[in-house]
Design a protein around this nucleic acid. Structure first.
Lengths: 346, 346
DNA sequence: CCGGTCCGGGAGAGCGCTCCCGCGCCGCGC
DNA sequence: GCGCGGCGCGGGAGCGCTCTCCCGGACCGG
């Protein structure tokens, strides 16, 4: 802190006008004489004026900040590291989310605050943060089915938009993917390449998304004459995918195609398959889900069902913005369509 | 917005005291009669009062927020997605950073704002954000050597702490790793397992960290009778690691050990090696750097040089805090020691 | 030529909070 | 018994901004 930052008042004095006029120029409100506007602009440039956000927020009751909350259940160690945060961000899917959110927010000079709500304590912090107006609303990504956060947010009518349909119906806005359709795409692709013994590794079945991916896959397989498809449940992590695959292999050694409910598990599947001496895709075809960076990091690169994460995240941000501005009061939902991305694994 | 949120005034009236007293209770200042304190506490609980952060910031000139800036050079497409952000977060190393930062910040009810400074425009936004007091300081992670951001920040004496020593000496606080030592650890391990033809894939050599890892490795190899070590330069990405390995293999098919300057490149190395029919670690041992989640995602799991990222990030947050509070005015640096983590790749 | 309208600009009232200052009361010392 | 110090509390100013009101001048129509 060298010297005090210039205020509106200072600029006004410098330009020989009133505070109000400078404010009008800064906020781009019309009704200002072009000549005066220029004078003010110069004065602003000369003094290096930057509006004080706190003062502005105080009167506009808007923070110009939104919270990006990763919510779920975890062990709140409270130590110098936060396992939950680490795990959430380790999911390569997250990078695309942030990319989409930032893409939308930045042109509006808004920035996301990163928060984690894995414990009751943490949830209360998120709530307090929004209540006290530090952020205008929240973008919520639940990693867990029975996440209480959306309900708490809705109860205080704090603006929020969820990623994925909540497990139990609630009057909240959300953005989601047609997961059933994704499961169908995976099944059709496996069938088309001639797989006769398809299997699947589902995500945690309390999550609607995991359920839908599974049922979309199963239904399509059934419709094509494969009513019984071996299933193992995983936890959306690499390890869980690998061990689920081992279980599947133990009972059904003749599997020739696997649909994993996300890329991380598919990566684990590839590892397990390779460890068992099988080649991908020659012996067993593997399809993932998400098209996250894991799909490319995998060997071989994964054929996968792509979620348009960036657009989805940007849409979430847009819906939240509309909610904050009061343009949209009714809960809405926007469902995106998945797309099959062909690479080498299937 | 149902009804107006209660203010200090409301609570004061409710408790039959003055605003000042409530403020004292809220901020935990002594000099308040225990009985009155209790009365006020109850009134706060009853009314569900939450202090308004904007108002508080306005007078304390402190935002209670810090910026977590990923800085570097990228193509600012300005579209709905932000490639730079996506790439930065795709680096699994980032999850551990956030984990460490959040671990330190959260107990202090502070939260990080995520920002990207890959273009001049974006840099100015970061600067403006700090100038206008939206954040009290910045934690800067440069992906690029000639990053102008630290200089700009220092010029306006905005509090900041860098990850890694800046390429050109500057009076800024930073936290870093003893990269030379890391390179040494890698070399010694390779030597100890009997490698005779070690090679290395360096990071972008304009980065001091990449240079140091390389020279630590080279020097140690030289000291043990291997003055000439094949080198290829990569870009810290998986693909660059794979293609660097291919180049290396073309000229030196007898390589039996590789030190890659980060895990992502090591992962690419493993893929390239496997594609060439070599087994890891049987034919070629591979060592990575970072111990990011990529180390485990790799097949086989990587032996790697671990950076204590969480502690480093937490330390950055602590140093920044001290700077903001004015407890520390002189630039400091804290250097951490790397550690070898043995897994299967070497 | 006068009244009405419109538009650019200024004055001032807060937004909710912190913090300085000062007042009254209690207790201790002379 | 009176004076003085200290502690607990209230009053009030003011942080920097926005926004509503109002005023004065220009312009138009009757």
């Amino acid at each position: 802190m060298t010297r005090k930052a210039p205020t509106l008042e200072d600029v006004a004095r410098e330009a020989g006008v009133s505070r109000a006029t400078v404010s009008r120029v800064v906020n781009g409100i019309r009704n200002v004489d072009p000549a005066i506007r220029e004078t003010v602009r110069e004065a602003i440039a000369r003094s290096g004026y930057t509006p004080n956000r706190a003062a502005r927020s105080l009167v506009t009751r808007r923070a110009g900040t939104i919270a990006l909350v990763v919510s779920g259940a975890g062990d709140d160690t409270g130590g110098e590291r936060n396992e939950f945060a680490a795990r959430a961000l380790a999911d390569p899917f997250f990078g695309r989310v942030v990319s989409g959110v930032v893409g939308f927010l930045r042109p509006r000079s808004t920035h996301p605050v990163l928060m984690f709500a894995e414990s009751e304590d943490a949830r209360q912090q998120v709530l307090a943060y929004l209540r006290q107006g530090s952020a205008d609303g929240a973008l919520v990504f639940s990693t867990h089915a029975e996440d209480p956060l959306p309900g708490l947010l809705a109860a205080e009518s704090l603006p929020c938009v969820l990623f994925a349909r909540p497990a139990r119906p609630a009057p909240v806005t959300y953005v989601d993917l047609d997961h059933r359709e994704g499961g169908r795409l995976a099944a059709e692709h496996l069938l088309a390449r001639g797989c006769r013994r398809g299997a699947t590794i589902a995500g945690p079945l309390d999550l609607p998304a995991a359920q839908d991916r599974l049922s979309g896959f199963q239904d399509t397989m059934a419709r094509h004459g494969h009513p019984y498809v071996p299933i193992a449940e995983g936890g959306f992590t690499l390890d869980s995918g690998a061990s689920a695959m081992k279980r599947l292999l133990a009972e059904h050694p003749d599997i020739d195609g696997v649909f994993a409910a996300n890329d991380l598990m598919a990566q684990g599947v590839c590892q397990a398959l390779r460890a068992s001496g099988r080649r991908v895709p020659r012996d067993v075809a593997v399809i993932g889900f998400d098209d996250s960076s894991a799909a490319l990091a995998c060997f071989p690169p994964l054929t996968t069902v792509r979620q348009p994460m960036e657009e989805m995240a940007a849409t979430m941000a847009r819906l939240l913005q509309e909610q904050i501005e009061g343009k949209r009061t009714e809960p809405t939902s926007v469902i995106f369509e998945p797309e099959l991305v062909r690479r080498e694994s299937a």
